[in-house]
């Protein structure tokens, strides 16, 4: 069929996630929007409106094999709050999730993504802060085993003044696994008093693990506070030694440190059952590792 080819590494937005390779033989409808590949693969976009002043939560689970694509377009009216939780567990499939969220004045969007990676897992989040005094929280944890790939990509557009964004993504990757973080904060001209903080921290647990990060700021207004921090590296040898000196075996010491590192990004706004599930999954993943 004469469709549009899937993006390969030559496409900047997919630089570190070669979709064409992960889904051989698949193509998009010829009229598809090249900037919204996941929406096209999902074959339809679910829509959701959170009415003024209300709160809503969506939980999306990705655990199928094969291609699993889902796209959500959400509109959060003034003063409303939308919480989105994504739980993706290890599989040989290609889970793809996209969320396009627009916020009216005083609205909040909170998102937590838990991803264990797959043949290729990618979660795209695109937030437009369209009203004043909005708050965006984008958090995530990725844990990637050998042969797995997890990609958390996001863009927050501050189109109006006074918005606030907090982003914290943490990852841990093992030999043969690949973690990708691409996060862009875009402050439009006139969006003064925007306050945006973006942080991504990743641990390479073994040689042969790969982490690719592209934290990006595009600022067109001067009276703003925007910062990002990004660290990638192995476990802190001194901390490890300190714990072992207290008599804790190396494997347990490692698990302890990695767990403490990761759970910092498990957001406080998660309902208790979900946060318990996430922490249990982190522990299980770490337990299997040691």
């Amino acid at each position: 069929m004469a469709g549009l080819a899937l993006p390969s590494r030559r496409v900047e937005a997919w630089k570190y996630s070669d979709l064409a390779r992960a889904l051989p033989g698949v193509s998009l409808p010829a009229n598809a929007d090249a900037a919204r590949v996941i929406d096209a693969l999902a074959g339809g976009v679910e829509t959701l409106t959170v009415s003024a002043g209300e709160s809503a939560m969506v939980v999306e689970r990705f655990d199928a094999s094969g291609l699993q694509a889902r796209a959500l377009a959400a509109h959060v009216q003034s003063g409303a709050t939308l919480t989105r939780v994504v739980v993706q567990t290890e599989s040989d499939g290609v889970p793809l999730g996209a969320a396009r969220v627009t916020l009216e004045a005083g609205a909040s969007f909170r998102q937590f993504i838990y991803a264990e990676g797959a043949r290729l897992a990618r979660f795209e989040t695109e937030v437009t802060v369209g009203g004043e005094k909005c708050r965006v929280e984008l958090d995530g944890v990725y844990l990637v085993n050998g042969g797995r790939h997890a990609d958390l990509t996001s863009q927050v557009l501050h189109a109006v003044p006074g918005g606030e964004t907090r982003q914290l993504v943490k990852g841990a990757v093992r030999h043969g696994g690949r973690g990708v973080f691409q996060g862009k904060i875009l402050v439009a001209g006139g969006a003064q008093k925007t306050d945006a903080r973006q942080n991504h921290h990743a641990l390479l647990l073994e040689d042969g693990a790969e982490v690719f990060a592209k934290p990006e700021l595009e600022i067109h207004a001067d009276d703003v506070q925007c910062a990002h921090g990004n660290t990638v590296g192995g476990l802190d040898a001194e901390a490890l030694f300190y714990i072992r000196q207290r008599g804790i075996p190396e494997s347990a010491a490692r698990a302890l440190l990695v767990e403490a590192f990761l759970t910092e990004a498990v957001s406080a706004y998660l309902p208790e059952t979900l946060s318990a599930e996430v922490v249990a999954r982190i522990r299980a993943w770490l337990g299997a590792a040691t």
Binding site: G208, K214, L217, H228
Partner: peptide, 24 residues
């Protein structure tokens, strides 16, 4: 005016340490 920061970080070794900070 505009000020933009586009860092690419690619790490493939577990004993490496990379730190990046940016402010505007």
């Amino acid at each position: 005016c505009g000020a933009h920061t586009v860092p690419y970080v690619e790490a493939r070794n577990a004993s490496a340490k990379l730190e990046h900070e940016a402010t505007t």
